[in-house]
Nucleic acid binder design. Structure first.
Lengths: 340, 340
DNA sequence: CAATTTTTGAGGTACGTAAATCAGAATTTC
DNA sequence: GAAATTCTGATTTACGTACCTCAAAAATTG
């Protein structure tokens, strides 16, 4: 039978009240007595029954998710997943509030986080914008003891407790590796379509991609990066333009958004189909995979990221350890033949 | 505020006892009254507080995991993961017992399941052996109302509630697709190393692999399957033999165990390195990936499978729905450049 | 309509913990 | 050594549900 507070009280020869004081680090216990109780806790291997504790406290974890009001498929999907979690949250003693902010806007994010500082929720998750002022407010949140998880885009070397997202350097390396293999040793020119080099995840993907190409596939030349601002129209124009000027382009790595434009540009262009590797499995990339326009899609599962963020926030709020292996977000690789 | 049983009683104009009778389908409630209560439940959107209910019941979920006493790395890892879950289980109101059985032995599995039928745990997970007698006992377990999850290897068209494992046909297709791309259109001969064609997952992987090769890569010839019985020594001999007799082998798909033998055979052979795709990320496949002996590893995460199985068993035991997207076990694709 | 059966209400205890009060004991301070 | 202060114990209530008992009310039966 699992030991309870009563067993500890008996074993330590103290009253229930004292055990409670020790357990919840309330004042009014002498050092010796505290030691006695702590010894009994270790001795009996007591672990607090969280369910009972939460019941007694009438506790509900209240979390805040700060999400950019982005209109690309991935962010829409992410929103959806968070809303799904909100719907399930009442059953899990959790209340999740969503705050929408303009995308790529450090000030807006900081303002939202200031707000969090006032509300003092049990935890906060946000998609980091890599800026010093964001780091600063993160530090203040940490001082206030509010658990923090970055989602999708990280804020390294900051006070965040956890990052729920993929390793973008590894993703870029994987893309590079696949590109190299798919092009199978031929001399080739490869174009890279990004959203913006101001965004950390895009920078990191490019970094990983370039590293692998330079290390292992010196026969491949990477053209200057096209910054399509995740905009399908702009992306289409840029890709079409590139294909016109470099009809020998044998591969395209699309590491950001705007894939609809990319796909259209390739379909319209009068060239041999290049090897195309893109990110995020959406309706358009999925059908492009099926049609053979895209050869591989690297994906991060927004649902996993959201659920992982919530699990981690809960654990942090309870001071519990996190199962690292469970929370590592994977880079899914989809080919035509393993679409789910 | 979340509605409680008290709110329902008040709203339906009945006593707490009656609400309790309805909720726990105890006898002694007239149809009209029951309807009134049920209406109030829907109206207020009442959901039973599982934590409080379990506390009141003093309930602990007791699950049984039936695992084969296999000595390959994957099964050893799986065992480890289950033991990890056992260690954490006390904190989660869960008690997990492991029953070891000889591998690939339908009778032993049936005997273990008979035992389960007697013990009546809250759920059981097992690695299916695809045999009629296993289906029969599964049916009896279902009749006894014991939730059942198959792990790693499925028992399709049976009474199991859920399968916690990868889609092996899709895995085979993925391997076929990668093989085709990596061989990049050349005429080529490919060897396949399996454990045993008697095991369902191996059959399915081969099926998927062959299908993609035949559909899309008609320039590739697949040699007759080598059945290495997941034994490194036997596998090494068979692969070495094949490489001697077919020096033109350009690719090898290893869809089962015995990869240590495969790796040794390739390293010793005096041929051009073939494209090698293998399953399960273990110490040896990992270093072979690093050394360039293996080109891609398809992996299923045993930890995910075990945790998913437990989550599903818990949900089934509570009659709760399962988040399908969360429980889909992914096929991880590892290349040299995205090793975790 | 009386006797019987079924349904319902009222109330309590329990699960394991949190949090509070109040009285009494031990310790410290002057 | 008395007063003030700090600890500690005993006890209670609460969280939301389960499960039990006993009595009262209602419905059904003859």
């Amino acid at each position: 039978m699992k030991p309870t507070v009563h067993d500890i009280a008996k074993s330590a020869g103290v009253s229930l009240a004292t055990v409670d004081r020790v357990l919840n680090s309330r004042p009014g216990v002498r050092g010796v007595t505290r030691a006695k109780v702590e010894e009994a806790i270790v001795e009996l291997g007591y672990v607090r029954d969280l369910a009972a504790a939460n019941l007694a406290k009438g506790r509900t974890y209240s979390f805040i998710f700060i999400l950019p009001e982005n209109d690309n498929s991935f962010m829409i999907g992410l929103h959806e997943e968070v809303r799904g979690a909100v719907a399930r949250s009442s059953a899990e003693r959790t209340r999740i509030r969503i705050i929408d902010v303009p995308p790529f806007d450090p000030e807006a994010l900081v303002a939202a986080l200031e707000n969090v500082l006032v509300e003092k929720p049990a935890g906060v998750a946000f998609i980091a914008v890599d800026a010093p002022e964001v780091r600063a407010i993160a530090e203040r949140l940490r001082e206030a003891g509010i658990p923090m998880v970055t989602l999708v885009s990280d804020l390294p070397d900051s006070s965040r407790d956890h990052y729920a997202g993929i390793d973008n350097i590894a993703a870029g390396r994987t893309a590079g590796s696949l590109m190299g293999r798919f092009l199978s040793g031929r001399d080739a020119t490869v174009a890279v379509l990004a959203g913006s080099m101001l965004v950390r995840d895009h920078r990191e993907r490019l970094e990983g991609f370039s590293a692998v190409i330079n290390e292992h596939y010196s026969n491949i030349v990477i053209l200057p990066v096209l910054e399509g601002r995740d905009d399908p129209v702009l992306a289409e124009r840029m890709v079409a333009d590139t294909l016109r000027r470099h009809p020998d382009v044998a591969g395209i790595y699309s590491l950001g958004g705007g894939n609809r434009g990319l796909i259209r540009a390739i379909q319209k262009a009068d060239v041999k189909r290049p090897v195309v590797i893109a990110h995020e499995l959406t309706g358009s990339t999925r059908s492009a995979l099926g049609d053979g326009v895209i050869d591989a899609v690297l994906n991060q599962d927004a649902g996993h990221e959201v659920r992982s963020a919530i699990r981690v926030l809960k654990a942090k709020a309870d001071g519990l350890p996190v199962i690292a292996a469970q929370e590592r977000i994977r880079i899914d690789i989809f080919l035509k033949d393993n679409l789910p």
